[in-house]
Design a binder for these strands. Structure first.
Lengths: 339, 339
DNA sequence: TTGTAGGCGTTATCAG
DNA sequence: CTGATAACGCCTACAA
């Protein structure tokens, strides 16, 4: 492997000049530039990103923290891979590499150390939840002034840089869609409260019902953990009250599909299914039978935006929290005519 | 941020000693060790991974190349995320960080440059296919002696380090399962030939049929591209010949589910469905209606093993290609009694 | 426009 | 057992 020194020799210039040419900095005589490029080309010289990083004290890496998911399929891989793709796409545009890390079950992630160790220059946090340790870790990040961005989770009372989707509106849309069609008894299967997402969905449901002149019936409120299994479990309760429950809104597609399965297992026929609306509009939604109406969340774009925010250091005017719009996708599961 | 020098001063030793203590190398007097640790702790010293990498000429990163998938959902995110989790889990055990890169649609990936630039110390390639450029790029990697491993794709005639699952056996099992139940006219919806996976599945199907004393009927051979949509398209053909076709084996779950949907769209009732077997045993399989029998592939373990192979530099005896077993998971879609 | 030289934070070698 | 002291490969004032 050719070294920079050899290139310098072959081109008859100093190493510094080689650097300048290759980095495109400083004024260079065209003739010199050509010679260096040629020598570099001929020798197949490739500068070490490592040495460069070291000299600049910049790793060139964007850290991405993912939840611990191996085998435990709580969430669909769908939305993390979407976000990751969005992040990756934008990161590449900015010449950053992606350093991905999985959270470990027990231990708390020490985000600041990643910066201190200079493994990463910035960080995007996915799948965070509101617990004490997580919050403390992120607060420290903030305090030390490291550039970071939290995705799909809001920490109330903090002013972290966040990218999220409008889950209140998404849920409101879902509920209004149901009430508009005359459904009156809507079961809401939410996720754990430790995700701001869940709280926002709750809020949206409340709002939607209120607008429809209805009230939230606490007995129709169910809590799962976003897994399909928890949907199946919820089906037990729903099945028993099927004479009154005429619609189900679930906080994600997996749970919605879980409920469908649970009902089926209990012998409920599709014709007797309540209306269903899920959330995320993951690929599972269109694979479901009946095809599942769902609230679409622009995960890919959220990923892109997170990187953008990191790159363009928040103008003072820019809100630390960016909210992207959600959209209701209606499919057979919730449309009386289509079914 | 405390520097190593400050730690050395506080501990009353040289910087070299600080290093030794922190890296656990060389003999150290217990008393010295204690003092250094204490000083380091007190000052909150964190060594720079960047500087260390530079000094050692080791990035400490394991590169993972992923296919370009944003938005184009050809494959399920499922199996990449499984493999990635497996890789991540094992990488952590070995103190490696994951540097993930997405392939770009047009351009060919220059793997060797990643090594030359010292961004990565080793590399795992996912979603490769057998085309000229890809092969050339990997051959170069091999020629230059960089540690790498290809997952889920076999390059015949080469002796690359590979981790794969036994797709011949998996497909054979699927077919035998069908023939054992008396199905005689089995449509096989395969993926593109440029994936060795597809070729192996074909081989397995051939083998299975042969063992059952049957012959491959070329008119029952369909080709999709692993997307759900291509399954829907295949359904058009299958629907027309439903009087003879009594079973469908698809090269992945998405296509199998696509076929189900296609048939449904054409008014075929579930009771009249042919038997179905998919492949991958992704989470979509159990979400399907009817639940889809499928060939399980140990993606997570494959990821772990790929890392292991990279870490324990192939003993001369070790086969460059590791093949993990596949397993048939039978669900309602292919069991006459259950349906 | 180009060369010189110091510095970046560790590791590793070699004396002591 | 511990302390100096060269690398490591590149960037960047500063000087010329």
């Amino acid at each position: 492997m050719a070294s920079r020194r050899e290139v310098a020799e072959l081109a008859g210039v100093s190493e510094a000049t080689v650097s300048r040419v290759l980095n495109g900095v400083g004024p260079i005589r065209e003739e010199t530039r050509r010679r260096v490029l040629e020598a570099s080309e001929r020798l197949g010289y490739v500068p070490s990103a490592l040495a460069r990083s070291f000299a600049r004290s910049k790793s060139g890496n964007l850290g991405v923290v993912l939840p611990y998911v191996p085998k435990a399929h709580l969430f669909s891989a769908y939305f993390f891979s979407e976000m990751l793709s969005g992040i990756g796409s934008k990161a590449r545009d900015n010449g950053l590499d992606l350093l991905v890390m999985f959270r470990t079950p027990g231990e708390v992630m020490n985000y600041t150390d990643l910066f201190r160790r200079q493994k990463i220059d910035a960080c995007i946090i996915l799948g965070a939840r509101h617990d004490h340790d997580e919050l403390a870790a992120i607060q420290q990040l903030d305090r030390e002034g490291h550039p970071f961005c939290v995705m799909n989770q809001h920490f109330a009372g903090e002013s972290f840089s966040e990218v999220d989707a409008d889950h209140i509106e998404g849920s409101r849309l879902a509920v209004r869609h149901l009430t508009d069609q005359g459904y009156r008894s809507i079961a809401f299967l939410n996720g754990p409260d430790s995700y701001s997402n869940s709280q926002e969905r709750m809020e949206g449901v409340r709002l939607g019902l209120q607008q429809a002149g209805m009230e939230l019936d606490p007995s129709l409120l169910l809590e799962g953990n976003y897994s399909r299994r928890s949907g199946i479990e919820a089906a037990a309760i729903i099945a028993e009250r099927l004479h009154e429950i005429d619609a189900v809104f679930a906080a994600n597609d997996r749970m919605a599909i879980g409920v469908m399965h649970g009902l089926r297992e209990r012998g409920v026929r599709v014709e007797d299914f309540p209306a269903f609306v899920g959330y995320d509009d993951s690929d599972a939604a269109e694979m479901a039978v009946p095809a599942l109406s769902s609230v679409r969340v622009p995960f890919f774009e959220m990923g892109e935006i997170a990187v953008s925010k990191l790159m363009h250091p928040a103008g003072a005017l820019q809100s630390p929290r960016t909210l992207l719009p959600t959209e209701l996708i209606v499919r057979a599961s919730s449309s009386r005519n289509v079914m």
